[in-house]
Each structure stands twice: as structure tokens, then as C-alpha cells.
Write a protein that binds this DNA or RNA. Structure first.
Lengths: 66, 66
DNA sequence: AACAAATGTAATTTATATATTGCTTTTTGC
DNA sequence: GCAAAAAGCAATATATAAATTACATTTGTT
């Protein structure tokens, strides 16, 4: 479940906390998603993508593992 | 939670049952996703997209409501 | 070195996606 | 029109995403 959330978030100079608040989840949830340990819901993925000015594909589609 | 799964599935002349089997869920789950009543997991969205030869964006991104 | 902010991590609880079963309704081919 | 397949729908059970709380570690700043 690799993804590009962390990179995109840092490019926007946003903390996990800030992103979490804006999409309505906790900091821990964002942390685990970035770590690739969670299988987030589609709604959450969409909310994150919109906050980071990315599309689903840019963040979650065919992300090269490791 | 509108999406383009039903359209894409029919274009591939696949039944809900067949798609369900190929992505490893039940027919009911596919039915509810197509109806827009579910908030599926990212993994399932990716599996569906791959089976239908689409990307996440094509199936789930900014789908015009009705 | 000391402090603070950001992040990592872990246990427990709660909400909800998905499974299972069963029945009904619609669609499609003969 | 009839039969079978496909799809809609609903109740209950189970697995897991996400919340909550709490503490540890890292990173940057003075």
C-alpha cells in the first residue's frame, strides 16, 4: 500500500496534524497511511487528494514499491 | 460516492458476479459500490480498476453526480 | 545540552466495510 | 410467456479502518 502522500504533504509544507485536521481524521491515521500500513477508505483518499491538490492517481496509483 | 464502475463493467460485458470473483469480494459488495452506497477501501478500488482496465481517476475521481 | 514541535508506535475502543444468507424483482434468451 | 440468470434489497455477523489515549523517538532551534 505504498503511496505518495508524505511527499505531497511535505511539498505543501503541511504537518501531519494540519492535514489530519483538514480532512477530518486524526494525526495517527495520516501517519499510518503514509507508512503504508493502512487501507484507507475511498472518501478519505479523495479528501486527502483534494487538500494536497493532487488526483487519486497521482497519490495512489501504481506507486513503485520501496 | 458516485462512480463509473457499472458503466465500465458493462463495457467489458462482465456480470457483478464475475467482477466480484475476480477482485475477491461478494456480489453484494459490487452491487452496493455501483449504487454509490458504499465507501470502499482503496485496495478494493485498485483491484476493481485493474480488472476493468481503468485507473482510479477514471472510475472514482470527480464523477459528475447525476 | 535543553527544550519544543513533529512524528513514530502501541493498546484499547468504536464505527463501518464486507460476508453471509435468503428472498424479491428485473432482465435476457428460448 | 416462460425459465434462468442477473441484479436489487434487507437482516445479521465478522473483520478491520479509524478514534482515542498515552508515551517514545526524532528533528530542529536557541
Amino acid at each position: 500500500m505504498k503511496n505518495n502522500v508524505k511527499i505531497a504533504r511535505i511539498k505543501q509544507s503541511m504537518t501531519q496534524q494540519q492535514l489530519a485536521e483538514r480532512v477530518g481524521v486524526t494525526r495517527q491515521t495520516i501517519g499510518l497511511i503514509e507508512k503504508g500500513q493502512y487501507n484507507p477508505s475511498l472518501q478519505l483518499c479523495i479528501a486527502i487528494a483534494k487538500e494536497l491538490n493532487k488526483t487519486l492517481d497521482e497519490l495512489f496509483w501504481e506507486v513503485d514499491d520501496e
